Computed example of a mutant assay.
Amino acid sequence: MPRPDRRLVLAGLGATILAPPIARAATVRDGAGREIAIPAKVERIFPAGPPAAIQLYTLAPDLLLGWPRPNRAEEREFLLPGIGDRPELGRITGRGNSANLEAVLQWKPDLIVDAGSTGRTYVELAERVQGQTGIPYALLDGRFSAIPESYRILGRLTGRVERAEALAGWCETAMATIRGRIAAIPPEKRPSVYYARGPRGLETGLGGSINVETLSFLGARNVADQPGSGLAQVSLEQVLAWNPEVIVTIDLAFAETVRSDPGWAGVRAVQAGRVHLSPKLPFGWVDFPPSVNRMIGLWWLAKLLYPAAFPEDIRALAREFHTLFYQVTPSEEQLDRILAGRN
């Protein structure tokens, strides 16, 4: 997992900040088991990183102050007008973190929310930021399996309990349905999969990586399932030795060239035409970032890996997901673009 920005902590230690008192109307236990005081008024929420921003948008878009990075035009097309184009805030955690405490305070948030690791490093960061700013800082468990409970926690924090339950219920139903069908598939019938990132396809997620959680959920055999976590660079020779049956990629350049690249010609997935480009509008279906956007990707992957067990219409599922979670119903032409994996 990416490390929190030490500059944020150091800036906070060196700054003289008059921290407003936290309202003590009620408390909620967050994903790390911390008791978080709910402010009497929650109207402005600062997302610490992209996963939190996406989950908050799907639940309570009006409360979202902005985005860790500006959304591109092709992404904003699938988001609510006036919300998808809200300003860039920077980020507190993760790669490219840029928001120090002074920057956070300038936005006057009532609440800070992060979604991801709930390990000690992130708990300590949350405690420091909360102590130095007086703004409640909630950590949501970013693991795929924890998405429903994270919605319920966020619903209690924001007063959007009913909608949080609807979103959590959709996720739980999808996971239970898919898990039940996967259980009936013998292990030897589950394909080996390589997750390819980057224009050369040589970055992948190791066994413990959050980036490949949905593949693990589906019982696929990740060929890079080896000790470690996170993303790793591998060689083409290693991929040839693994010889996966299926390749899933998020990179358009790789997807367009791998079939004609002689170096990849010996890989079973290439020979069988089983190289699949993941949809990514407005957010990636496998990861990038690893948030609730992976829920529709779970159905997509299930149909790719086990077509006989999943006869559902992915277009209908995508339309339903977009309408419920992103609150914008895509047209047929937009669905074509989404499912093609292009911008």
Rank of each mutant, 00 (worst) to 15 (best):
D225E: 07
I185D: 07
I210A: 15
G207A: 06
E162P: 09
K189Y: 07
I210G: 12
W170D: 10
L218F: 03
V212P: 05
E162N: 11
R200L: 14
A196C: 01
P186L: 04
E165Y: 07
T204H: 00
G205C: 12
V193C: 02
S192I: 00
P227M: 03
R163E: 15
G159D: 01
T173G: 06
K189W: 04
S209N: 05
A196N: 03
I182W: 03
R179E: 14
I178P: 08
L215Q: 08
I185V: 06
G228P: 05
L231F: 14
R160G: 11
I178R: 03
L231T: 14
P199K: 00
P199I: 01
R200M: 11
T158C: 02
V212E: 09
G198D: 04
W170Y: 15
G228R: 00
I185M: 04
D225R: 10
G198R: 03
A183M: 10
G169A: 15
V223E: 04
L167Y: 02
A166W: 06
A176N: 13
T204F: 00
C171K: 09
E203R: 15
A224C: 01
A224F: 05
S229N: 10
R163A: 12
E165T: 11
P199R: 00
Q226K: 15
R160W: 10
I178Q: 10
T158Q: 01
A220N: 06
I182A: 02
G219K: 08
I210L: 11
G230F: 00
T158D: 00
T173L: 12
I210W: 13
A176F: 04
A174M: 14
I185H: 09
G219P: 13
G207P: 12
L167C: 02
T204P: 06
A220P: 04
I182C: 05
Y195Q: 11
A176M: 09
L157S: 08
R181L: 01
G228K: 00
G180M: 09
L206E: 06
T177N: 15
A196S: 06
T204M: 01
A183I: 12
E162K: 14
A183S: 11
P187Q: 09
I210D: 07
G205D: 13
E172T: 12
P191G: 03
R179S: 15
P199W: 02
F217K: 00
S192F: 05
R163C: 09
G201Q: 00
G205Y: 02
R181Y: 06
W170V: 09
S216P: 10
E203F: 13
A164E: 09
L167E: 01
L206P: 13
P186K: 08
V161I: 14
P186S: 02
S229I: 13
Y195P: 00
E188T: 14
V223S: 03
E203P: 03
C171N: 13
R163T: 14
R197N: 08
V212A: 09
S216G: 14
F217C: 08
G180L: 01
E188I: 03
A176V: 05
L167S: 06
W170K: 09
E165N: 12
I185Q: 02
P191R: 10
L157T: 08
I182T: 08
P199M: 02
A220K: 07
N211A: 14
G219W: 07
K189Q: 15
G207D: 02
P186M: 04
R190V: 12
G198E: 00
E162C: 07
N211P: 05
A220D: 02
S209Y: 07
R163G: 12
R221S: 10
Y194Q: 03
L202W: 12
I178F: 07
W170N: 04
A174P: 07
